[in-house]
C-alpha cells in the first residue's frame, strides 16, 4: 500500500490563478524600478564626468527603445505604488479605542503624501 499522495507543484503555479499572476507581476515591478535606478545612477555618473558625457547620455536616453523601456517602467512603478499603498493598512494597524482606523483612511493618507511628493519633485526639477 502506498502512503498519502503528494500532488506536485509545477514551477508555473503562478500562471494558474489570476491572483497568483498579479502577485508575481507585483513582485517583478521591483526589477523595472531597480533597472531604472541603475540608469539614473549612470546619468549622475555621466553628469559628473562632464558636459559631453552628459549630453551624449541624454541622447541615448531619448532613443525610442529607451523611452519605451521607461514607459513600461512607469507602468510597473505605478502598479507598485497602488499595490503598496493598498497593502500598507495590513501592516500598520492604528486603533482609536476599540475601533480600528479603517483601511481606506490609512491608504488615503499614503495617496495624499504621494501626490504632494510627486508635485514637489516635479516642481523642483522643472522650475527652470
Amino acid at each position: 500500500m502506498t502512503g498519502p499522495y503528494r500532488r506536485p507543484v509545477p514551477s508555473t503555479w503562478w500562471l494558474h490563478n489570476r491572483a497568483y499572476f498579479l502577485f508575481m507581476l507585483r513582485e517583478l515591478t521591483s526589477v523595472f524600478i531597480a533597472a531604472y535606478l541603475i540608469l539614473l545612477l549612470i546619468l549622475l555618473y555621466r553628469l559628473n564626468a562632464g558636459r559631453g558625457a552628459y549630453e551624449s547620455y541624454l541622447r541615448f536616453l531619448g532613443a525610442p527603445g529607451m523611452v519605451t523601456f521607461h514607459v513600461i517602467a512607469l507602468a510597473a512603478a505605478l502598479f507598485h505604488t497602488v499595490t503598496w499603498f493598498n497593502l500598507t493598512p495590513k501592516v500598520l494597524v492604528v486603533r482609536v479605542g476599540a475601533r480600528r482606523v479603517p483601511a481606506p483612511i490609512i491608504a488615503g493618507v499614503n495617496y495624499a503624501a504621494w501626490i504632494v511628493f510627486s508635485a514637489l519633485v516635479a516642481w523642483i526639477v522643472l522650475r527652470g
Binding site: S30, I33, Y36, L40, H70, A73, L74, A77, L78, H80, T81, W84, F85, N110, A113, W114, F117, S118, V121, A122
Partner: peptide
C-alpha cells in the same frame, strides 16, 4: 519607491 519612483521615471 512607491512615493517617488513614478515621478522620477516620468
Amino acid at each position: 519607491a512607491a512615493l517617488l519612483a513614478p515621478v522620477q521615471i516620468a
